[in-house]
Every structure is written in C-alpha cells, then in structure tokens.
C-alpha cells in the first residue's frame, strides 16, 4: 500500500499516480538486508529482522544520510512500499552544509579528486558506474565524477560551490545558484532539489523540495520552468 502524501488515500501496490487526487507518487525504495535477506527500508540503520548494523557495511559508510544497499541493485526496485517512507526524503543531509567548510574541498571542475577522505569507497566500489548528463540545448556531454557522493548543481556562489556549473549554458539565469544535488549511493543516482527558486522537473513532472528521484537512463532533467536548461541522464 502507498499512502498519498497529498490526500492520504491508500493506494494499491504499483500505483504511480494517487487514485484519488492523481498526485504523482514517489515509490519508496526498499532493499534487502545483506545478513538475513529480509526487506529493509533504504534509509534504515539497523535491519528490523536480525538487527544487523546496516551502516556498518563499508560500502555505505561514507554516505551519511540516505543509505541503500548498493550491492543489491536488482532488489532496489521491488515495489514494497512502506507507509511514511517518503519522510526520509525530507532529511537534509548534514554533509551538504559541511562540504563548503571543508578546506580540502574544491569543485571537481578544477581538480577532479575526491574531496572527502573516503578510502572505503575506493575499496568497495567493484564496478564504477559511470554516468553523464547530456545538455539538450547545446548538445554538450558532462560526465559525472563518481568519486563524489554528492554533486551540487548550480552556479558559482559563496555558500555551496557547484560541482556541475551550469552558468555557461544559455538561459542559465533561471537556474538557482544552489539548485539541486545528485547523490550517488552505490550504483544508484538520486536527484534532489535543494530549494531552487524555479524548481526542478524530471520528465516534465515537478520534483518537490525534499523528494528525491532515482535517476534512470533517459530521464529528462529540467532546471527551472519552461524546459530551457535540460539534461538527459545517461548511464555509460
């Protein structure tokens, strides 16, 4: 059952639109516990079945907030929705604020090196899933650096320096300086709007602040209204 965040109507499994008010429903992500195989919520810290410490898993250690069991990609889309699972989407991740204060931090555009001491990542990432954003209006391909857990999308500012700087693209004035994030958790890429002025749209549907969207290859991301600064997400 999926409870609609807008009107609280309980929807059956598989619903992508609320049956009552047709609000697009975010299908909550679940994964399986690596220890006992029981289904767990993707933001769980401990497995509810066996008590296994999910955060102790080295693959997910460096990612502070939302956590998914990245080594089980095929199970992540199991439609096992849980009431209130969308709550986890609203938690602002602490590392967003911390990053700019990190003296070692520099936007990847200057030095493509890992800003965080994340040896664990390098050890456990057996496959590096490469992804890219294809800017539709100028036919430019931007490869996403996968060694960063969070990529900030925006324009230069003194709070959160952007990893993906869109200020060079036409119509970039509708993009906020701190517009959104792409989070990389294992081999999954999530898009979040971090409070942009003109909004973020995925496949022409608005992505509310606090929700996150698991990107699939081919998704169209539009920054701001009017589909003026648009990217196609591609897995390479």
């Amino acid at each position: 059952m999926i409870i609609c965040p807008s009107c609280a109507h309980p929807n059956p499994v598989g619903a992508t639109y609320c049956e009552a008010c047709f609000t697009p429903l975010a299908v909550p992500m679940t994964s399986t516990c690596p220890n006992c195989g029981a289904p767990v919520r993707s933001d769980a810290i401990f497995c509810g079945n066996c008590g296994f410490n999910l955060q102790a898993n080295p693959a997910i250690m460096p990612i502070a907030s939302g956590v998914s069991m990245s080594n089980h990609p095929e199970t992540e889309e199991l439609p096992e929705p849980i009431y209130g699972a969308t709550e986890n989407l609203e938690v602002p991740s602490p590392d967003v604020e911390e990053l700019p204060e990190d003296p070692a931090y520099q936007p990847h555009t200057i030095t493509p090196m890992s800003p965080l001491p994340t040896p664990a990542v390098n050890k456990t990432q057996l496959q590096v899933h490469k992804a890219a954003l294809f800017h539709v209006q100028t036919n430019t391909l931007i490869e996403l650096p996968t060694q960063l857990p969070v990529l900030h999308i925006g324009k230069p500012n003194n709070l959160v320096p952007p990893d993906i700087d869109v200020s060079g693209f036409p119509d970039s004035d509708i993009v906020s300086r701190v517009h959104g994030d792409i989070r990389i958790e294992g081999d999954a890429f999530y898009l979040e709007d971090t409070g942009s002025s003109n909004g973020t749209y995925v496949n022409n549907l608005p992505l509310p602040v606090g929700n996150r969207h698991k990107l699939r290859s081919g998704d169209r991301i539009s920054l701001g209204k009017g589909d003026k600064v648009s990217f196609i997400f591609q897995l390479l």
Binding site: N203, N204, R216, S217, G218, D219, R220
Partner: peptide, 8 residues
C-alpha cells in the same frame, strides 16, 4: 530500455 515518459 524503459523510460518513464508520458504521452503529452
């Protein structure tokens, strides 16, 4: 190769 795009 599924894309969650809708018919406009």
């Amino acid at each position: 190769d599924y894309r969650p795009t809708l018919q406009p």
